[in-house]
Amino acid sequence: MSGETDYSEKVMDHFHNPRNVGKLEDPDGVGTVGNPVCGDVMKLYIKVNDGRIADARFQTFGCGAAIATSSMVTELARGKTLDEAIAISNKEVAAALDGLPPAKMHCSMLGEEALKKAIEDYRKKRGSGEAEG
């Protein structure tokens, strides 16, 4: 039951004031990752416009690192092209948060994976004919 609270100020800022929280109505892509047995669950929604991520929102069940990561990954994704966004790694997200404690690096995988899944979801939907702006 020992607490891992040596988070950076940036992590705490994104935990206490997360950006882009919530659902997107009519999302173009959704990615859900994680499971409560292992800790964190993240659901990431994207809106795509002209091949760029116009909006990204999240809902997260998880620890401080998971929430801060979710917030940061949506910030990083917004405005990027799909190819740029799909290349965002958990290390980049962690670096943008001024680092995470080593025991919490696995939580930052969530952000990367959720974003990739949301983009794949979008591409799959488009591939199956639902033309999308």
Partner: peptide, 22 residues
């Protein structure tokens, strides 16, 4: 852990059995 961090910000210290904290 989210609850603990929120409580801690207000000066309250408790514990959790969550995996992400241990």
């Amino acid at each position: 852990e989210g609850i603990l961090l929120g409580l801690e910000e207000k000066g309250v210290a408790a514990a959790t059995g969550s995996a992400c904290t241990s």
